[in-house]
Design a protein around this nucleic acid. Structure first.
Lengths: 349, 349
DNA sequence: TCATCCATGCTAAACGATTTAAGCCCCGCG
DNA sequence: CGCGGGGCTTAAATCGTTTAGCATGGATGA
């Protein structure tokens, strides 16, 4: 491709258009944004010329003047994890629809890296941050954001007491739904795999597990709780730990679907059948869950919905920085598939 | 959190620091960047003050002056697809390590949306674009990028003749490796599932399929070729189509792992055993592939490696805009697992 | 005929940084 | 005492927009 057309004389700027048309930059600027204050004919002339010369506005310059960038800083800890990928996709969709563009930062579950990343993003003066705080993030870690004056929305996870908007799922209820389902199927010894106390989701999902047990009148046995990161690898390891117990559980709820997939593999590796010999309930209902073999019984946490909600909260706070803090907490929904069935003792044999 | 500290007097800028320290903005700017031209003592004083006052540089303003943003525009067509998620993660990792930040655009396989998205990204004046062009993108579609003077690197997919750098995998060789593996196992009727002619990957992977057949002296039977999008849903549909043939193949290579997962499900849904009754070879070797049941035999295309390569190409072109166009094409590698075995006819029965 | 008004477009000052040529101060040397 | 020069700092221009306020000129109304 040749690029002699415009590149020859340097970038085409407002000023260049102005001098070429014999108008002022003010007029050009207004005309390009279709301001009624410039005559219809002139507007047309300017816009035609801009198109013809391949004018591309410089938002950086405009932002300097307007103190608005239309950039949203999105800080996630992991984008390979499908729950966060789905979240990112939902955010991208909602934000791009509103004319915002995402500046991406990934913290890898590391507070130090998170601080650095968010610091870098802040230099671009995003209109808002949408973040899912890394493991062990404290209020103090978010202090820099708080005083920056930039709108902040937390999504999925939150740092309690941070005073930022939040969009997510009711994790406590969600996991208790999974436990209740297992109880209804007849299970009495139910484990939990995955989840770390360093995140709000870890704490709340554990609380949901305990609440579920309590509601069924079942005791919480620490041995049946295998905390750990929400990864496939860990799900496999966790379920192995449970199966190795002297008196193993007949089922388990998982911190997330990834853990559940790992658990399914672990159960199969032990020569047992998932849904018959051992039941598994996942959490989140990511796209793959329905496609697994056996299809995963899980809890739909409405990731795309709270992703959109987070985007909406960000836009709302940009528009009204002093509006009261808002929390959007969606009701999760049990999705019954094939990975959980009655416990072996109850089955015909 | 209270934010009376600094927010009270508006943002803290270079000028503000300057007047507070009784120095000029020039000195502050130099000092903050550790220029040896300002006295060590002054530098220290400035940096301490900056930290204390919570100074955050405004990169937009700096970029206006320096014509460098440290932003890389990344345009992908789909981020939920794990191959692109893994790519995005690799890009993020490599770029953030080099002090660059990603501005994200998603085209949803739609040329119109792609044009709009890239146009928006361009307004932020990224130092480079790293793109994986949407389906049916033509040279003309990329013309605007070409004349923008911004460095452009294509990744995974490419528009032939566009004259941009490229990093990806040798797809023709890759798929032929899969075919060769099936041939070696004894298969004689091998199908191909997925892939569209609107992308370079679709064309090259099909070519690899045909080359693989040819090398084994097998004919290309159009009926065994089930083109389509590289999605789980489609893999399932595609394999169903093949199995419904009067004389169905005993194996198939897939456009990507997602297709392969779908195909595995389709085979199982037909009551057949994958790797025994029907063999499947995937493509890409995304993280899940090793964890499937059965574990997926596939071709590793080195996504993280060519992701890093794409990042490196972008950095190189930023540094030297006139350097010769470079193509990094990595050798794919067959990964033998459990989803492909000898054809039924050869098995003991 | 003159003041008023409207429509249109312009002037000029921001915005917050970077950068280069120039200035100041002081010291040492002849 | 004057001059050269080293070390540090600064003034001012610049990047590409936006926008408040002003200027112009023709039409309108009294």
């Amino acid at each position: 491709m040749d690029d002699t057309e415009t590149a020859s004389l340097g970038r085409v700027t407002l000023q260049r258009l102005a001098s070429e048309l014999g108008l002022s930059t003010a007029t050009i600027s207004l005309a390009l944004r279709d301001s009624p204050v410039v005559a219809q004919a002139t507007r047309q002339r300017v816009q035609d010329m801009a198109r013809e010369r391949g004018y591309v506005a410089n938002r950086g310059a405009a932002s300097l003047r307007t103190a608005r960038t239309n950039i949203i800083g999105v800080g996630l800890h992991d984008i390979v994890n499908p729950s966060f990928t789905e979240l990112l996709a939902a955010l991208e969709d909602a934000l791009s629809g509103a004319g915002k563009t995402i500046l991406l930062g990934v913290s890898q579950e590391d507070v130090v890296r998170q601080a650095r990343t968010l610091g870098t993003l802040a230099e671009y003066r995003p209109d808002a941050f949408i973040i899912s705080p890394a493991l062990d993030t404290t209020i103090a870690d978010l202090r820099a954001l708080a005083i920056s004056g930039i709108a902040v929305v937390q999504v999925t996870r939150e740092v309690e007491g941070s005073g930022f908007d939040f969009a997510g799922s009711d994790d406590e209820t969600g996991v208790s739904l999974g436990v209740a389902h297992l109880v209804a199927l007849g299970h009495r010894r139910i484990g939990m795999i995955g989840g770390l106390q360093g995140t709000s989701t870890g704490r709340k999902r554990l609380a949901g597990y305990m609440a579920g047990l309590a509601k069924a009148g079942l005791p919480f046995e620490p041995a049946l709780h295998a905390p750990g990161p929400g990864l496939r690898e860990y799900g496999r390891e966790g379920v192995a730990r449970l199966l190795a117990l002297e008196n193993p559980p007949t089922a388990a709820v998982c911190f997330n679907d990834l853990c559940a997939f790992g658990a399914v593999m672990g159960v199969q590796a032990a020569g047992l059948e998932v849904g018959a010999d051992f039941s598994i309930v996942g959490y989140d209902d990511i796209g793959e869950a329905a496609l697994w073999h056996p299809a995963l019984t899980t809890v739909y946490t409405r990731i795309p919905e709270y992703g959109r909600a987070a985007a909406a909260l960000a836009l709302a706070r940009i528009a009204a920085p002093t509006r009261p803090v808002e929390r959007v907490v969606l009701e999760p929904k049990l999705v019954v598939r094939a990975s959980a069935g009655p416990p072996p003792a109850r089955r015909a044999r």
